[in-house]
């Protein structure tokens, strides 16, 4: 008798809409950190939407100065909620609030926003929330805080949440555009960034690649350097683009040409860009993330399905790391530009 009921219609979940004006993008020319670019973009969004009522709420777990929501707090205090060191509650509360006609940002360190509150993120995903979760201090780039503070599984964990869109911006210009894209689009987003100041990603003429009129498009790979002679494409996830470009320069001096591809959405494969480099001998992934569950897995799974021929080499973090400066940790993990250049030469 139960089988005779038709339940195929009407299973729709809709959230209260929020209308947001997206401000113009900024262009950074000088080195700065992605988290500051996030903080500035957040203020830009609030400025563009202020009026009788600002439809923006920002939640903080006692880290506003580090995750750069302090600028929003000082200018738009009525939309700023200090929730204390209570990440589980904050994650659930922020997700619920995001379905009620409010643009909601929750910013925290990666280990808290991603690892600590994973269950709540899963529930937000099931409930079709529209949370903009911004996690700084991700990867080994957390300062000298050591293992407990290194969120090296943000791709691996959020791979399991089908309604979350993951963005790892390469530099402050792409961060600015990614934050504004997330603000203007429905659904859950996780934006991942490290702690350090980063150089601006530029083209070979020295112009900011992600500045000016560049429009961030979710899921698109950006080919930063391309050569017909290249036998290898190096896919750099997020802020590893800076290391990849330095490695490119080292290799060029040594007469080795490689393509450099920036990957800002490591759970998505840009098959049109990939199709331009299928003749390579090797595809190499470079990420400040566990090798065993990062973008290398995304790419490897895709390649296996397509039967693509290049060999796949994954350069990532192989275990819990040490407490120290980012550059020292990258060297220990062979993820710094010098090590990457050397490892690529060993492939050829």
């Amino acid at each position: 008798m139960r089988k005779n009921f038709d339940f195929s219609e009407g299973q729709v979940v809709s959230n209260q809409p929020v209308s947001i004006t997206i401000p113009p993008a900024r262009t950074y020319q000088e080195k700065t950190d992605n988290r500051s670019a996030f903080g500035n973009a957040l203020v830009d969004i609030a400025e563009a939407n202020k009026g009788d009522r600002l439809p923006v709420a920002v939640f903080d777990c006692d880290l506003a100065g580090s995750v750069k929501t302090d600028g929003f707090c000082s200018k738009f205090n009525s939309g700023f909620f200090q929730t204390g060191i209570q990440e589980h509650h904050t994650a659930a509360m922020a997700g619920a609030a995001s379905t009620q006609g409010v643009l909601v940002f929750w910013a925290d360190f990666g280990v808290f926003g991603v690892c600590e509150a994973y269950n709540q993120a899963r529930l937000n995903d099931i409930n079709h929330a529209e949370l903009k979760l911004v996690c700084t201090h991700c990867g080994l780039d957390v300062g000298e805080d050591g293992k407990t503070h290194q969120c090296i599984d943000y791709i691996g964990l959020f791979r399991n949440l089908p309604h979350f869109k993951l963005i790892c911006p390469a530099d402050p210009n792409q961060t600015d555009r990614a934050v504004k894209l997330a603000a203007g689009n429905p659904g859950n987003f996780l934006l991942v960034m490290g702690r350090s100041k980063l150089g601006i990603i530029k083209d070979e003429s020295g112009n900011p690649l992600f500045g000016g009129d560049y429009a961030f498009e979710f899921g698109r790979f950006d080919m930063l350097r391309k050569s017909d002679k290249a036998e290898i494409t190096l896919f750099a996830v997020g802020q590893m683009a800076e290391q990849a470009l330095t490695a490119w320069e080292i290799l060029k001096k040594d007469g080795v040409e490689v393509n450099i591809c920036s990957v800002s959405c490591p759970l998505v494969v840009d098959e049109f860009t990939l199709a331009t480099v299928t003749g390579n001998r090797f595809w190499v992934t470079l990420e400040d993330h566990l090798e065993c569950s990062g973008f290398g897995c995304t790419l490897g799974t895709y390649m296996a399905g397509k039967g693509y021929r290049p060999g796949l080499c994954r350069f990532g973090v192989r275990g819990y790391s040490a407490s120290g400066e980012r550059d020292d940790l990258y060297r220990r993990e062979k993820l710094d530009a010098q090590s990457v250049a050397r490892r690529i030469k060993e492939l050829l």
Partner: peptide
């Protein structure tokens, strides 16, 4: 927590 989120949104 969910209820707090809805109350805050209001």
């Amino acid at each position: 927590s969910t209820g707090c989120g809805m109350a805050v949104a209001g």
